[in-house]
Amino acid sequence: MDLRWKKRLMDEGEINRAVNRMAHEIIERSDRLEGVVLVGIHTRGIPMAEHLSKLIKHYEGVELPVGKLDITLYRDDLTEIGVQPIVRRTEVPVDIHDRELVLCDDVLYTGRTARAALDALMDLGRPSLIRLAVLVDRGHRELPIQADYVGRAIQTSRSEVIKVRFHSTDGQEGVDLLERGS
C-alpha cells in the first residue's frame, strides 16, 4: 500500500497542549481521582496513558496506575484477515473491579478497536465506569461509540490515514495526514 504524505496535523507542542488539556479534564470530571486507572491500548495508547499519568501527578500529586491492553484477541476480523497480528501481553497492574477506567488510544476511527477494548476490559473485571480518551477523533464511526476526552477532532476522508508518532514508540512526535495511493 502506497502512502503519500499530505500535511502535518499536530506537532509536538500541539500534542503536548492537547494532552495537557485532557489531563485537566480528567482531573475535573473525576469524583475520586485516586480511584482512576489509565489503560492504554497497544501500541500508541500506552505512551499516551503514560503521558497523562505524568501530567496528573505533576498537577495533583496523585500517581495513576497505567495498564497496557492488547485487544488483538478481541478483534472481530481475525478469521478474515491475511496477516497475523502479533499478540502482546496485557498488563493491568491493579484489580479493576469497581474502579474508574480511562481507556486511552491515539486515534478514534470506526470504533471497533474501542469496542474490542471494552470487551477485553470486561473480561478483566467489572469496572464502575469506563471513559475513553483519544488524541485524534477522525470520524467515520461504524459503532455507537463516542470519546469522552478528545485531543483534536479532524474531518477526514476514508482514503486518508492518520499517523501518530510518539517518542517512546517511534523516536519522534507528531500527527500526520497521509493519503492512500491508488
Binding site: 484477541l73 478481541y74 499478540v87 470487551d119 477485553a120 473480561d123 478483566l124
Partner: peptide, 15 residues
C-alpha cells in the same frame, strides 16, 4: 500473552 489470559477472571477471549 496467553499466560496472562489464563490468569484473568474470565479465561476466555473471542479470537
Amino acid at each position: 500473552a496467553m499466560v496472562e489470559v489464563m490468569q484473568r477472571k474470565v479465561k476466555k477471549v473471542p479470537a
